[in-house]
Write a protein that binds this DNA or RNA. Sequence first.
DNA 1: ACTATATACTTGCATTATACAACTATGTGA
DNA 2: TCACATAGTTGTATAATGCAAGTATATAGT
Lengths: 140, 140
Amino acid sequence: MTKHPAETIELELTILMRRFMAATTNKKVGNLDRSAYLLLHQISSQGSAGVKALAEEFHLDISTISRQSAALEQKGYVYRILDPQDGRAYSLQITESGAKELASNKQARFERVAELLQEWSLEDQQMFGELLSKFNRTFI
Amino acid sequence: MTKHPAETIELELTILMRRFMAATTNKKVGNLDRSAYLLLHQISSQGSAGVKALAEEFHLDISTISRQSAALEQKGYVYRILDPQDGRAYSLQITESGAKELASNKQARFERVAELLQEWSLEDQQMFGELLSKFNRTFI
DNA sequence: ACTATATACTTGCATTATACAACTATGTGA
DNA sequence: TCACATAGTTGTATAATGCAAGTATATAGT
């Protein structure tokens, strides 16, 4: 029987998860672990957001984001803007130091991946990037 | 400036990690969590192997695999074959019940992914699967 | 206006996956 | 034979996470 591509995709995704996780979990690049990096990236690229919105974006529990953003605030990478309309809410904004840290992180991460991909044709890299993005958008 | 594809790939991989993790960590499909699924798959497709070899394959600590395989043995999905040449070593072999569990798991996981990909052209699915495999092989 | 309920966030607790280190038992080389 | 290496197990620590309970604020129904 011929394998449906989704079978391959499922298996390879699971393997990738394993490997990528092992290579990135609890491992900071510079000063940011994976969650901090993603949070900063999100805030930086999509603008400030509250805990709840971020939790939904990442499909994580609100409490998890609450702790992660508290940690980022602690490090001075984000600050809170209290919502003038709602005394319970606030949104997170990136600081200058946060933006700097994010940029250097991005660079380091990029270099790591570029090294892995050095043997790949640019076309394959392009295609892989596009399909990953497409998949992530599908995956929401 | 034009973004190098590796930048996109890095970011999308990180996002994917987050999402896929959230959707699969601590979540069993049937009776198997992600590690159990991967271990069973490995043993089933690549033949029996010892704790050390599996740890290397997955880039995990030997102790982690030791626990995970003990759990699989506990459930009756694998059994040990003592190495006749080496009294310290053994290798893990899948049982019939393990093979059955693996098959039904694979099916369930496949269906989940196929559902996500239903809007995709078969060509894109094919390509995505190939690139993922290629990346995993690169990633070793 | 008052009360009940909903919402945004925090904090306490439990669980899980993992690594590292110490340990046991067995094998191997000088 | 003895020192060291190797396969695997177990104890302990850490980190990411979810759930549940708690706090403070907002909103809706009466």
